Simulated scan of single mutants.
Amino acid sequence: MELRQLQYFLKVAQKEHVTQASEELHVAQSAVSRQIHQLEEELGVQLFMQKGRNLQLTPVGQLFCKRVDSILKDLDRAVAEVHEFLDPEQGEIRIGFPHSLGIHLIPSVVAEFKRRYPNVKFRFKQGMFPSLIRDVISAEVDLAFISPFPEKHEQVEGEVMLTEELFAILPPNHPLAKEENIKLNQLKDDKFVLFSKGYSLRPIVWHACLEAGFTPKIAFEGEETDTIRGLVAAGMGVSILPEMALFQTNPLQPARVRISEPKVTRTIGLIHRSDDKLPRVAQAFRSFLISYFGLQQQTGTSKNGKHHNGNNKNTPVGS
């Protein structure tokens, strides 16, 4: 059994089509078909069955595919570890994060890290809370920023990097737009623009409204902070967003007002697999982040000079 056969098999399993697999592999279709046939002969099983114009894994093929995927990922990591051992500053860091952190936080920390280690490469993957957990467990990413921080999880661990304040955002002509502070129940009669279900900010806002004594009336739902901010600015409702999601990216901006009661915050953590040792370059990035956010919490400011109520740094998952 050859490594090439396993690589061809996995690519066909992913694409469900020999032609598409051969195009991505940059080899002849006949070569891919021949390697798959030889693999099936050696194993004595049929790995694929025809389904229309596509190929579909047989039950035994599905079982074999899971193992092959794991083996090839381990091999890739082994090769990466060798390269990192020879030169730790030449490695690649795979990091996941939610959309709301991609506006400012991720570019800021990556730029700062690359000033120190200019040859390190990054591979990014955005996702929602459940998919980020899955990506860490399946080793699709080495590290993931996540919010809220999962206090208890058997397969991931990490640290709370910061606790961020959330602000009410209002249309510019809203009666409360000029206020410095408001109580959240002052918005009980307004319609809300919220994140769609599945986004971690939605339950934070929802529970804060319930704590304030009302159930929010939903006018619109969105999947990006720019969309929600734009709809609020256009007068379609009110909302609550984290501070780092309020950087101006277009001329139409809502008013930002601090919520005095109840205080609305979210934790932002960094997680990795609990049963696995991080690659050296990823461990270096993790150590850098702990120091980076620790210094910000001591000064009470982020890199842009905005206040973050950071606490609970280095809190282990499950504590």
Rank of each mutant, 00 (worst) to 15 (best):
E180D: 09
I133Q: 07
L101R: 01
A245G: 07
F129G: 03
H26T: 11
E140G: 07
G294P: 03
R273A: 11
G158S: 03
M1Q: 05
F122W: 01
E157F: 07
L10A: 06
N250A: 14
Q297T: 11
M49A: 13
A282P: 00
Q253Y: 04
V257I: 10
R53A: 09
E2S: 15
E40D: 10
S147H: 10
I93V: 13
I36W: 02
V281A: 01
L25M: 08
F9Q: 01
P242T: 04
P118Y: 10
P150L: 00
I95G: 01
A144V: 05
R34F: 13
T299F: 15
G222H: 07
F129M: 07
V12A: 02
V79Q: 08
S260H: 03
L47T: 04
L57Y: 08
H37Q: 12
T225V: 12
K66M: 14
Q296M: 15
F167E: 02
E23F: 08
G230H: 10
E180N: 07
L166G: 04
L132D: 03
D135Y: 12
I95V: 09
V68P: 00
H17G: 01
C65Y: 14
Q38H: 11
S291I: 08
T267W: 01
F214V: 05
E89M: 04
K121L: 07
G310S: 15
L75D: 09
N173V: 13
F85Q: 12
G96Y: 03
H83L: 11
P130N: 09
I290K: 09
G230Q: 10
F124V: 05
H174P: 02
F122T: 00
E180G: 05
Q56I: 11
V68K: 00
Q298I: 12
T19I: 07
V232F: 10
H307D: 12
R34I: 04
S30K: 13
N181E: 12
E24K: 12
D69E: 14
T58V: 05
Q7T: 08
Y8N: 09
R286K: 14
E157I: 06
E140Q: 11
Q186F: 11
L289H: 03
S70A: 11
V27Q: 02
F9K: 02
T249D: 15
P172I: 03
V141D: 04
F247T: 13
I106D: 00
S260L: 07
Q155A: 14
V264R: 08
Y8S: 05
P262E: 06
P107S: 09
L86R: 07
I240G: 06
V257H: 06
L246N: 09
E180S: 09
P118R: 05
V45Q: 01
G96E: 02
K217S: 15
F214L: 05
P148F: 02
A21H: 07
D190W: 07
E164Y: 07
T265D: 13
E40T: 10
L201W: 04
Q298G: 12
E40P: 09
L143A: 02
H153K: 03
R4E: 10
I218R: 13
A28Y: 08
L132Q: 02
Y292C: 03
L101C: 06
N173Q: 15
I228V: 14
